[in-house]
Simulated assay, not measured.
Amino acid sequence: MLDLLSVFASHPSCNPSISRWSNGENVRVKKLHDLKQWLTVADAARYLSILFGEDVTDADVFRLGLDGQLRLSVYFVNGARGRCGPVVSGSDAKSTIEWTTPKQDPEGTHGLDEDAVRALTEANLISEADLADGITVVNFAAWVHGLLLGDGKVLEYAEKTVLLDGVWDLTMLGHERLEVEQIYQSLTGGPEVDMSFQDGQLDHPIVSREDGTYCQIHERNASAHYRPAACLPVDSVIVVRTSALRDLEARLSEPDQRADKPIARRERATLLVMIAALAQLAKIDVSKPSGAATAIEHQSALMGARVAARTIENHLKHIAEAIEGRSA
């Protein structure tokens, strides 16, 4: 339950914007919040102001969402359309493999590398007997039916769109992240956000719900056909589930084990060297902390454990010093 009674009315740090809740209104607010499945961003900010004992603005709520501390959602006021399905591993995703022989395409380039031959045999398109007979394959092509999310994950969505209504969670994997970032920058007087992803497939909003269903939002074009939407519907509203606020409150109430036993300097240096080695294996250039941090943040989001880019960058900046210390 959203226990607003845990906030002491006489808390010495309460400022005027918070103290207005100290006159008994918190009891009524608690009961009202318990009945709601979601809150507006403004209401979520007021609740967090009480929880933290200090002013929390709408911009702070959006920043918590961007940093992976608070799950943001979207309420489709008039519904939306999307292609939906589960997220599966690339090896389990539906795929199509096509190939032709020299007889079918005499002008083709003969021969395939080992990976292509292995894919054909695993798909039962070529048998071991065929290989023994010296069959040659040309013009090999393979593709996955779905949206590539990275980290070997695929959104295996259906061919047809379906109606989305009610509240869905923002995955922060697609264009919705840029939209939230733009709202945050606008509220804080920041710069305009470049509203495009490097990966075109993810340049569209992606939402999810607790049963594991993911959906890429679609919109109707001039020909009345549906296509991937450029952004969230204009008649949708970003909200915060009360369950997400409970999750945040539960994490804040957990004892900080790290405070009992801080990481020693030597252990920290060892971990940084290990991170550098793993990054090199993954072909991530940690000598450029900002770019590396963005790539690692995206990967952590796909794992369901997002770490903010600025937090990652702060750690990566110490790698060179750690390596130098171990080499001395």
Rank of each mutant, 00 (worst) to 15 (best):
M1V: 15
D3V: 07
S10E: 13
S10M: 06
S19A: 15
S22W: 02
S22G: 15
S22N: 13
V27L: 13
V27Y: 13
V29M: 13
K30G: 02
K36M: 07
W38C: 09
L39E: 08
T40Y: 01
D43V: 06
S49N: 10
I50Q: 13
E54C: 05
D58C: 06
L64Y: 14
L72D: 01
F76G: 02
G79L: 08
A80N: 05
R81T: 01
G82W: 00
G85T: 03
P86F: 04
S89G: 15
K94Y: 03
E98K: 11
T100D: 10
P106S: 08
A116C: 13
R118E: 13
A129H: 10
A132K: 15
G134P: 03
W143P: 01
G152D: 12
Y157N: 03
A158F: 01
V162T: 13
D165G: 10
W168S: 10
T171Q: 00
T171F: 00
L173P: 00
E181Y: 04
I183Q: 13
Q185F: 04
Q185Y: 04
G189P: 11
G189K: 07
M195G: 09
H204E: 01
P205A: 09
E210W: 12
Y214S: 03
I217S: 05
E219M: 08
R220K: 08
A222R: 12
A224V: 05
P228L: 01
C231F: 10
L232F: 06
P233R: 04
V237Y: 07
V239L: 05
R241Y: 05
L245Y: 13
E249C: 04
R251H: 11
P255E: 09
D256C: 09
D256P: 00
Q257M: 14
A264T: 07
R265C: 04
A276S: 12
A279W: 03
A279P: 07
A279G: 15
Q280W: 07
L281F: 09
K283A: 15
I284K: 08
S287E: 08
K288V: 06
K288H: 03
P289F: 07
A305S: 11
R306P: 10
V307E: 01
T311V: 12
I312Q: 05
E313A: 14
K317W: 01
H318N: 06
A322Y: 08
E324N: 02
A328S: 12
A328M: 07
